[in-house]
Design a protein around this nucleic acid. Sequence first.
DNA 1: TGATGATCATGC
DNA 2: GCATGATCATCA
Length: 244
Amino acid sequence: MGARCARYGAQARSRQPPGGSIWEPPPEPPPDEATLQQRADALAGWTLGEIGARFGWRAPPDLRRHKGWIGNLVELALGATAGSRALPDFPELGIELKTIPVDARGVPRQSTFVCTAPLGDLGDDWSTSWVRKKLARVLWLPILGDGPPGERMVGGAVMWSPDAEEESRLREDWHHLVELVVRGELDQVTGHRGEVLQLRPKGQSAADTSWVLDSEGEWVRAQDRAFYLRPSFTAALLRRALRL
DNA sequence: TGATGATCATGC
DNA sequence: GCATGATCATCA
């Protein structure tokens, strides 16, 4: 990593600001859901630049090489456990935190990553699936604006669990996608499949592959994939949450 | 213009 | 190496 690849955040944290002031320490994990909700509410209306400044994080000029910057910053600001582990962001509360880029009307601009999908071991049933666990309880944090990250603004947080209909649609798609994988019909598994849930490529590059059995029972390499929520689905759940 | 497929950084 | 956090870039 050279000088032209600045490490935003980590770099800034390692120095003191001029003038002797100190940065705010990140909060401890929230003890309960209400506290988390209050903290999230307190972020609404602030720009990411302003929030970052509290913790000594400087906003990158764009997200091309900092795709996780927004997510990492709000994790810090809300007291989520740092680092990447196969656990919810708030393990004690069983709550997942997801930022979601929205347009001026509050409509999501992109799909939402859910979890990686090990093609050889997607699980037996929806009820025990990783996707269901991940989506059991989610704190959605809308991010408004599409300019420089520091100028984007936090919107009103939405605490969400799937209702019966949402879960039903997720379950149907999950079973459909998993069935294709189990049958070895990997060429059928594209982003076109699934009404609300997709299985799309995910990795460092398209060269990231794993061995799977194809429909003829032969071992072949298949691109690594992950589950994603379509924007139409997240748009609907945000609408539902805001009407309640 | 929206959706699909490709990609980037970090922590453990 | 894999899971975390996602957005980017291209093409239909």
